[in-house]
């Protein structure tokens, strides 16, 4: 059975097609003797409704993997497709267009526009995507409410705390009908309770039908994903696999 959904951009999604497929992806930065091999043949597939965490020491290739999955970097070798669309070989403009309509980013660096209000920042991806200002602002208001920032829409980033700014960036990454959310340490500046609320939100988005990759050092956050893959020196060295039947979970507990 295949369920079809049409996103705002008119891109048809088919649940039988992987939301993200990385096949034997390698990435080399620099040349000859100075070359650094960030990824050495990584394969990873995400289906709709799947949430994967990526863990590994600094320099293991986690962030590179995310940049390539989002089409912000081109792999040196291998294939990348998002919702069945091949990202390799596309022009930067084509990749940017695909990314705008299907991929939501929540990155370490906030990249908030300081001259725009919180609501304008959050609405930005929708407006860039051609949505009219009024519905975009309405969507931004509810996205801000989801991250616990009701009533902060008219504030400018520098009027808000670091944690609040981070939540604006999260709201911006999650807004709209994204089929893929890519998050890189999204909860860095947040206290543990707010951080958990954000992870619960991400989990709910995935359960509602998108897919997500979370890069994190925090096992407690990775635990919200269905499975965790471990990167070391640009290779996936281990994978927890998906969860078991919930009835088997901690059988001794309940």
């Amino acid at each position: 059975m295949s369920v079809q959904a049409v996103t705002g951009s008119g891109l048809v999604q088919d649940s039988s097609v992987a939301v993200l497929e990385l096949r034997d992806v390698s990435k080399v930065y620099g040349e000859s003797t100075l070359a650094v091999q960030a990824l050495r043949g990584v394969s990873l597939t995400l289906q709709q409704g799947e949430f994967v965490a990526v863990m590994g020491p600094s320099g293991s290739g986690k962030s590179t993997l995310l940049q390539i999955a989002g089409g912000m970097e081109q792999p040196s070798a291998g294939a990348v497709s998002v919702a069945g669309h091949d990202l390799v070989g596309q022009t930067p403009a084509e990749r940017a267009a695909a990314r705008l309509s299907t991929v939501g980013f929540v990155f370490q660096s906030l990249n908030l526009v300081s001259s725009l209000t919180a609501a304008e920042n959050v609405a930005l991806p929708l407006e860039l995507n051609g949505m009219a200002s009024r519905p975009a602002r309405a969507a931004a208001a509810s996205a801000l409410a989801e991250v616990g920032l009701e009533g902060c829409g008219d504030k400018f980033p520098d009027e808000l705390s670091g944690g609040q700014q981070q939540r604006i960036a999260i709201a911006r990454g999650l807004i709209g009908e994204r089929s893929l959310i890519l998050a890189d340490e999204p909860t860095g500046a947040l206290d543990s309770v707010t951080g958990e609320a954000i992870l619960r939100l991400l989990r709910a988005k995935v359960d509602a039908g998108c897919a997500a990759i979370l890069v994190t050092h925090e096992a407690r956050h990775a635990a919200w994903a269905d499975r965790t893959v471990f990167l070391r020196d640009g290779l996936i060295v281990d994978d927890t696999g998906g969860p078991q039947d919930p009835r088997d979970l901690l059988g001794s507990l309940r």
Partner: peptide, 22 residues
């Protein structure tokens, strides 16, 4: 270390899935 980490991660995930809402 890695085998234990994956096993502990699975346990952590399974416990997390049992957590009720706030």
């Amino acid at each position: 270390v890695q085998r234990q980490r994956a096993a502990s991660m699975r346990a952590l995930r399974d416990i997390t899935r049992l957590k009720p809402s706030d």
